[in-house]
């Protein structure tokens, strides 16, 4: 295990914890961008270059910006005075700690995990492209369809309604 991997893992974990503990939403979104960059750095160290760059492109370049826009459009950029937690937050914390304990126990005690470190796999962008266009062509097409549907759906949902119609859709 290299020191670089340990450092990026610690930064990622700290940033993730920051995301969920800050009160101001914009700070949360910025910490989220750090988390995603950390995850991309871990991908790079696991010799998955293409996925790492795609992670930065999609998450830092697109989703973080989208979230920031949504925060400003819903006027939640200021820190709220009231509590930021839901009414049943204690149970939520307990359940998530249980989840982490169970997963961690399973990871540390599982006998089936490959023990020996293997050499880094040689993957080029060419391999990935050929796999996408060959073996995985059907999922690729379906993802294209899903993305188109999601785009149209998002536009329709967020579209400004005709001011003449009220909430129930009737013309007034």
């Amino acid at each position: 295990m290299s020191p670089a991997l340990i450092i990026t893992a610690i930064v990622t974990i700290l940033a993730a914890a920051t995301v969920m503990s800050l009160r101001n939403l914009v700070h949360c979104a910025l910490a989220m961008a750090i988390t995603f960059s950390g995850i991309a750095a871990i991908y790079l160290q696991l010799s998955a270059e293409f996925v790492g760059f795609a992670e930065i492109l999609v998450y830092v370049g697109a989703i973080a910006i989208l979230i920031v826009f949504a925060i400003l459009l819903t006027r939640s950029g200021e820190s709220p005075e009231k509590s930021v937690l839901t009414s049943g937050w204690g149970a939520g914390i307990v359940v998530s700690v249980l989840v982490f304990t169970a997963l961690g126990w399973a990871v540390l005690n599982s006998a089936g995990l490959p023990k020996a470190a293997t050499a880094a796999p040689e993957t080029t962008v060419k391999n990935i492209g050929e796999a996408l266009m060959g073996k995985f062509i059907l999922p690729l097409e379906i993802v294209g369809l899903v993305l188109t549907a999601a785009m149209i759906g998002a536009v329709i949902i967020a579209l400004k309604e005709d001011p003449k119609t009220d909430n129930s859709g009737r013309k007034s």
Binding site: M1, L5, A9, I13, V99
Partner: peptide, 27 residues
Amino acid sequence: MTPLQACLLVSAFLFAIGFAGAVTRRH
């Protein structure tokens, strides 16, 4: 701890944090 286990632990922690945030935060 092998590198695989380290990655899996990081991922488990991220999952738990994400879950905690999704169920406890109001916004």
